[in-house]
Structure formats: structure tokens, C-alpha cells
Amino acid sequence: MRVLFMCTANSCRSILSEAMFNHLAPEGFEAVSAGSFPKGQVLPRSLSTLQEAGIAIDGLSSKGNEAFEANPPDIVITVCDKAAGEACPVYFGPALKAHWGLEDPSDIKGDEATVSAAFHSTLAHIETRCRALLDLPFAQLDRDALKRELDRIGTL
């Protein structure tokens, strides 16, 4: 199963999600990420947060969803924050789609401790959702049931 995490810039939330999912995922599961307007580089704070959590950062890069046209995902999860007025990217493939909105920790202003706490809190939130996804009984779920579960996980 291949999961595509999408946000606007593909420099923070979708990168954190890709890395966390792949860190937790058993063989046969893979996450990738993309942005509707990729920044072209991953935020250094995203990378340092992952490293502090013991998660590999090799191969992480900011890219658009055209990178996945040849090998489309099974599931697309947007992680932009609609509540903040962000425009969520749209993926026009046949994949099952869900929204797991997250506040952008890179928007947090404050001292080092405040910003670091925001990134670590976002990563912890992503971990909770990724674990819930990976714990699903995929063999027992049809497409509609999987969609309901994905939507439910987005509320965790």
C-alpha cells in the first residue's frame, strides 16, 4: 500500500508525515509526500525534529505530485489546515482521499523552546494517526469502510 501525504509547500507537515509513516510501517507499506506548490527544500527544523526523534531523513525532498504519476498512490492524505484558511491541494487520481488537518508548526513564532515544542507536538500528533492507520484490519475493510476509518483517524 502506498500513501501520499500532501500539503502546500511539501517542506514540513507532509515531510514529517512521510518520514513518520515510513519509520513505523511494516514491509509492504510506503509513504511519499508532495506539495501543490513545493518549496523546493525541506525546512531544516523539520529535519532536525525527525533526527531528534530517531527517524531517518535520507531521501526526503520537497516535490510536486507529478513525481508520482508513473506510480500512483492507493491513499492520498492532505495535511493542510483548512481552519487556518489554507487551500488544500487536490489530487486527481483514483486514490482514496482523506484529510488529516494539522496546524503548520513553521508558523509558530517565539523562542527556541516554543518553536521546538510546536514541531515535536505536530510530530507526536502525526505518530498517533499513522499508528491508527497501520493498525487497521485492511483485509476486512472494503473501500467505503476504509474511507470512514481514514476520516475517523483525521479527527484523532
Rank of each mutant, 00 (worst) to 15 (best):
residue 47 L to R: 07
residue 47 L to S: 06
residue 48 S to L: 12
residue 48 S to R: 13
residue 48 S to V: 13
residue 49 T to C: 14
residue 50 L to G: 02
residue 50 L to N: 04
residue 50 L to I: 10
residue 50 L to K: 07
residue 51 Q to P: 03
residue 51 Q to N: 09
residue 51 Q to S: 11
residue 51 Q to C: 03
residue 52 E to Q: 15
residue 52 E to Y: 03
residue 52 E to C: 05
residue 53 A to P: 10
residue 53 A to Q: 13
residue 53 A to W: 07
residue 53 A to Y: 08
residue 54 G to E: 06
residue 54 G to H: 11
residue 54 G to K: 09
residue 54 G to W: 09
residue 55 I to F: 10
residue 55 I to V: 15
residue 55 I to D: 08
residue 55 I to Y: 07
residue 56 A to P: 03
residue 56 A to Y: 00
residue 56 A to D: 14
residue 56 A to K: 12
residue 56 A to I: 01
residue 57 I to K: 03
residue 58 D to K: 10
residue 58 D to M: 00
residue 58 D to N: 08
residue 59 G to K: 09
residue 59 G to F: 04
residue 59 G to W: 06
residue 59 G to Q: 07
residue 60 L to H: 03
residue 60 L to Q: 04
residue 61 S to R: 14
residue 61 S to G: 03
residue 61 S to I: 07
residue 61 S to P: 00
residue 63 K to R: 13
residue 63 K to C: 08
residue 63 K to D: 01
residue 64 G to S: 08
residue 64 G to W: 04
residue 64 G to Y: 00
residue 64 G to H: 02
residue 64 G to K: 01
residue 64 G to F: 03
residue 66 E to L: 04
residue 67 A to D: 07
residue 67 A to P: 00
residue 67 A to R: 06
residue 68 F to Q: 02
residue 68 F to T: 02
residue 69 E to T: 08
residue 69 E to Y: 05
residue 69 E to S: 07
residue 69 E to N: 01
residue 70 A to G: 06
residue 70 A to D: 13
residue 70 A to K: 12
residue 70 A to Y: 01
residue 71 N to D: 13
residue 71 N to K: 10
residue 71 N to R: 11
residue 71 N to T: 12
residue 71 N to A: 13
residue 72 P to M: 05
residue 74 D to H: 10
residue 74 D to K: 00
residue 74 D to Q: 07
residue 74 D to M: 01
residue 74 D to L: 01
residue 75 I to E: 00
residue 76 V to F: 03
residue 77 I to F: 05
residue 78 T to R: 08
residue 78 T to N: 13
residue 78 T to W: 05
residue 79 V to P: 04
residue 79 V to N: 06
residue 80 C to D: 12
residue 81 D to S: 15
residue 81 D to L: 08
residue 81 D to E: 15
residue 82 K to R: 13
residue 82 K to P: 06
residue 82 K to I: 12
residue 82 K to V: 12
residue 82 K to N: 08
residue 83 A to T: 15
residue 83 A to R: 15
residue 84 A to P: 09
residue 84 A to L: 13
residue 85 G to M: 10
residue 85 G to A: 11
residue 86 E to R: 06
residue 86 E to C: 15
residue 86 E to G: 05
residue 86 E to A: 14
residue 86 E to Q: 13
residue 86 E to F: 10
